[in-house]
Write a protein that binds this DNA or RNA. Structure first.
Lengths: 131, 131
DNA sequence: CTTTTGAACTTGCAAATTGCAAGTGAAAAT
DNA sequence: ATTTTCACTTGCAATTTGCAAGTTCAAAAG
């Protein structure tokens, strides 16, 4: 069980995703990452134990869902839930700040800023936008 | 010197403010906290060594400025710079997510959502809005 | 069908970060 | 002049992070 410092919505949100890796993982999911190896391939080079732990915590928090490995599927894939998709605006705001205030950062691809919370969750079959 | 994991603007922003306390401190500054003891009085109960360290790092990052203790002033006060004010939208997005998705969180006061980046920085004498 | 491969974790430990409690030193208050 | 308060610093213990090896199990290869 996760311990909230106070009832403050900001502090509480950070109690869930305010560590060194969670938002980086979620960013990659917004950009299309689905599998464990997709996350291990992130340029930031997360280590495997931390990744496994973060995925578990994010799943427990209802931000990420392990999609059932159905017939014909290779292994379980991860997806952002609707709740997780709700973090998209926060991620975009952090990205804008980084691009505006820090020198020499990458420019986020257009599809990142085009992402909307509604693009995620609800096991929406029928066309994810991103490629 | 701060080490960036990659050139990703999100990861880099988190390399600066993505620890357990920095954004909580900045939230309190948006809400009007100015002095060391204001921060120690936060409901989240930060410990003094962490607070001193975070203020130093945020100052080095240009997010917070130590206002000179001039004649007639009590002791040095801290203020958000324009660069720091740029984080307001990210904070508001995090707050909205917390209020929408986490049960029983506090409702942020109206002035928090009313805050705008331009309210901060540039040693703006002549009327801070808050209060 | 047996072996190999590779993706998805686990485990063990060292290093770094965080948190608590107790100082310290200079300015303010009395 | 002495006490109190504010703004830190210091010394550990506890937690978290990171690295390097395993381990497991399904699927592909032989």
């Amino acid at each position: 069980m996760i311990e909230f410092r106070t009832g403050c919505p900001i502090a509480s949100t950070l109690d869930i995703v305010g560590d060194r890796w969670s938002l980086v993982i979620i960013r990659s999911m917004v950009m299309g990452a689905r599998s464990y190896s997709d996350f291990l391939a992130m340029p930031e080079k997360i280590s495997t134990n931390i990744l496994a732990d973060r995925l578990k915590r994010l799943e427990e928090a209802g931000i990420v869902a392990r999609r059932q490995a159905r017939q014909g599927q290779t292994r379980g894939a991860y997806a952002l839930t609707a709740k997780g998709g709700g973090l998209v605006p926060a991620l975009q705001a952090l990205a804008r700040w980084g691009e505006a205030e820090l020198p020499d950062r990458w420019t986020s691809p257009e599809r990142f800023y085009a992402a909307r919370p509604e693009d995620f969750g609800d096991d929406s079959r029928g066309g994810r936008p991103g490629r």
